[in-house]
């Protein structure tokens, strides 16, 4: 049997793991050791006590993805693993951007851009504005590109977290 390998593709893997020390290291270490490309990993508590949800963005063909999920499943502290179908998954990221504002004109322009992207200004100083924006990574990229011309002093991104649409859970 010949398995048709997709071109390297970005996958969103959602994993429920025991919420205890060392689990992140086990997962991250697995990726390093097996040579899988990890683009992003976010961890936070989940709806269940003692369990945390990890969202991992990784690149690879179908065969690599299959190995990633199987190897993750082998970890004793990993409860469940699922490769989320991008078509029925909502993916969001939070980003904070500190922009340099030299003139009053710049300042209002930046506020306008932030509004268009449904961002919020969460901090103001004589020379900076800090925007908070949530959305898909692409949307965040777009806003960053727009405000880049004013001079970005700092960016802090959470990396995307994701969940299936509708009734589906993992």
């Amino acid at each position: 049997m010949v398995i048709k390998l997709d071109e390297s593709k970005t996958h969103i893997i959602s994993a429920l793991v025991l919420n205890k020390p060392g689990v992140l290291q086990r997962v991250a270490g697995l990726f390093t050791r097996r040579g899988y490309n990890i683009e992003n990993i976010t961890v936070g508590t989940s709806e269940q006590e003692n369990l945390a949800r990890m969202t991992i963005i990784a690149k690879g063909d179908e065969k690599v993805l299959e190995q990633i999920t199987k190897q993750l499943n082998k970890l004793i502290d990993v409860i469940k693993v699922r490769d989320l179908d991008p078509d029925i998954t909502v993916k969001r990221e939070l980003c904070l951007i500190k922009v340099h504002t030299s003139t009053e004109k710049n300042r209002s322009e930046i506020i306008q851009y932030a509004n268009i992207f449904r961002g919020r200004i969460i901090d103001v100083s004589p020379e900076t504005l800090t925007i908070e924006i949530t959305g898909s990574p692409e949307k965040i990229e777009a806003l960053i590109d727009l405000v880049r011309t004013f001079g970005i002093k700092e960016i802090a991104r959470t990396g995307p977290t994701a969940i299936s649409r509708g009734n589906k859970t993992i």
């Binding site: 049997m1 010949v2 065969k63 190995q67």
Partner: peptide, 9 residues
């Protein structure tokens, strides 16, 4: 299960 398909199809 991780051994299946790892090296040989």
């Amino acid at each position: 299960p991780a051994e299946i398909g790892k090296n040989v199809d």
